[in-house]
Simulated assay, not measured.
Amino acid sequence: MPEQVYNFYAGPAVLPKQVLKQAALDIVDFNQSGMGIIEISHRSQAFTAVIQETEALIRELLGVPGHYKVLFLQGGASSQFFMVPMNLLQKDRVASYLNTGVWSNKAIREARLFGQVEVPYSSEATGFTRVPQHGEYTVNPKSEYLYFVSNNTVYGTQFHAMPETDAMLVADMSSDILSRPVDVSRFGLIYAGAQKNIGPAGVTLVIIREDLLERVSESVPTMLQYRTHAAADSLFNTPPVFSVYGVGQVMRWLRDQGGVAAMDRLSKQRSSLLYEVIDSTDFYRGHAEKASRSAMNVTFTLPTRELEEKFLRETTEQGFIGLKGHRLLGGFRASLYNAFPLEGVAKLAEFMQAFARKN
Rank of each mutant, 00 (worst) to 15 (best):
S335I: 03
L61P: 01
S335D: 04
V119H: 02
L224Q: 13
V50G: 08
M173H: 08
L273N: 01
I190V: 12
N338I: 04
E343L: 08
Q158V: 01
V260K: 09
R252T: 03
L113S: 10
D29F: 07
Y6V: 00
A167W: 09
R180G: 04
V5S: 10
T301K: 14
G325I: 00
A46W: 02
Q158I: 02
G286P: 03
Q318K: 15
L312S: 13
S219C: 07
L336C: 10
R357C: 00
P303L: 13
F187W: 06
S179H: 07
F8A: 10
V170I: 12
F320L: 07
Q133L: 15
T126E: 14
R357W: 02
R252L: 02
K358R: 13
I51T: 06
E308I: 03
L88K: 09
K17P: 00
R285N: 08
G258Y: 05
K347G: 02
D92M: 10
R293A: 04
A356W: 03
T165C: 14
Y275G: 11
L189W: 02
S280I: 00
S335M: 07
V19Y: 11
L189T: 01
P12V: 00
L98S: 10
Q257S: 13
F81H: 15
A291W: 00
A192Q: 06
N237T: 05
I278P: 04
I108Q: 05
Y68R: 09
V247M: 14
A46C: 04
R313G: 03
K324S: 11
M86W: 02
R59K: 12
L328N: 10
A46Q: 11
A354G: 06
P163H: 14
R313A: 12
R227F: 07
E276A: 15
G246S: 13
N197I: 01
R305M: 07
V154N: 15
E110C: 12
G188I: 00
G331H: 09
S174Q: 08
L146W: 06
G286A: 15
E110D: 11
A77L: 06
T153Q: 15
L61T: 00
K69N: 09
F332P: 03
V70R: 13
H229C: 05
V247Q: 09
P239G: 06
V298Q: 04
E39G: 07
P303I: 14
D256A: 15
P141K: 12
D26K: 08
I37D: 01
D264K: 15
S143A: 15
E308L: 10
N87R: 14
I208F: 14
P85G: 11
P181G: 08
R265I: 09
L71D: 04
T304V: 08
E3L: 13
A77T: 06
Q32L: 02
P163K: 13
Y245S: 04
Y97W: 10
G115A: 09
G246I: 00
N338M: 03
L98F: 08
